[in-house]
Design a protein around this nucleic acid. Structure first.
Lengths: 193, 193
DNA sequence: CGTCATCTTGAGTACGATCAAGAGGGGTGG
DNA sequence: CCACCCCTCTTGATCGTACTCAAGATGACG
């Protein structure tokens, strides 16, 4: 199943009849408060599973950040299937556990880091997730997405990005491309646990 | 197994050989950054499971907030046991899912609420969790714990608590006892999704 | 009664938000 | 091909909330 930039994959509150596996592209998972404030919990990339939260309805919304392809799987029979199929069981449990670990890490970032530490930690996480070796980072998401992920405003994201640039820690090649120039300093700034 | 106020149940980084079920008392689960800043992910009460994160080592620390009794369970055989035992499977999956839902909710609070909204949401959650009906809330944890849970400082927690009191939304009966005087206003303040 | 830890309160500061304006870039249509 | 529009991003000025630093109050315990 294919979704294009900005399309919603599922809404918070929808009946959770199925779960999803991201094949390509990036998905943002977000929660809202009534006056429109938004908090993105997670950017999900290829291989990651969505919608395992597992109550009757989804408790967050999922939207396509760019061109996204997902597999749709039936959720109703998952619990029993987990019992039978060891591989599936491991896959689902691993997905839940790594999501839990990631969101705990994110919690520390949101509650206890300042703006520049948040940015540095975010960029480093993207770097290790996508390229592994290369220091070039593609940002498929807009400043709004980054801000809503880090608990900041778009202006602060922009300012701190350029501050990192002025200090020689990163190079900016257009708004959506960043290169880590000084990984050591970057890690020092985001001294996360 | 019994722990008293302030004792550590397990450390971040310890080998995760077992998991825990809280029998009585309150446990705080927290992550740290190197300079000592702390973020509490969760307060776990009776019936809740700890340590299901499931990597080789724990990725957070658990400490007793007050007098705590926990059951210790072997983790090594859990994956297979989940395959055999449907009740256990449901219990573990439910625990993972509700923890995930709670931490997502917490993420919105940390990233997108201001101090007074955080306090109101925190007190309401405590109220529904413990008493259900009664509006009296016991706070087993100190201001430091509350601050580290909400991503605030102890001074701000104290100030905002007294602000809610001045406005007639809550009554304060000593530092560790709060009564919700005007639940409607409370919910309006914490208009969480 | 004294000590220690926790909590409260005040004054000043700083960080990030808000408000506002302008720059860049891509797409569409004339 | 250029002009225009729209959307995103950047940059500046000001403001406000929560933090920091500091001192005092409260309560538990020996």
């Amino acid at each position: 199943m294919r979704f294009s930039r900005g399309q919603t994959i599922f809404f918070e509150g929808d009946d959770a009849k199925c779960f999803f596996e991201v094949v390509s592209g990036t998905v943002r998972c977000c929660g809202l408060i009534q006056d429109g404030r938004r908090q993105i919990h997670r950017f999900a990339g290829p291989g990651e599973l969505l919608g395992l939260g597992g109550e009757k309805t989804f408790n967050y919304s999922a939207e396509a950040v760019d061109e996204v392809v997902v597999l749709i799987r039936d959720l109703s029979s998952l619990d029993e299937a987990i019992g039978c199929d060891g591989d599936l069981r491991r896959k689902v449990l691993d997905a839940l556990r790594s999501e839990l670990a990631a969101v705990r890490c994110h919690t520390v970032l949101l509650g206890r880091m300042n703006a520049i530490e948040k940015l540095a930690a975010f960029l480093l996480a993207l770097s290790t997730r996508s390229n592994g070796i290369d220091s070039l980072i593609e940002l498929p998401m807009t400043r709004i997405d980054i801000a809503d992920f880090l608990g900041l405003t778009i202006e602060t994201v922009s300012r701190k990005l350029h501050e990192l640039h002025r200090e020689g820690v990163i190079a900016l090649d257009g708004p959506n491309r960043v290169r880590i120039a000084d990984r050591r300093r970057m890690e020092a700034i985001s001294e996360a646990a």
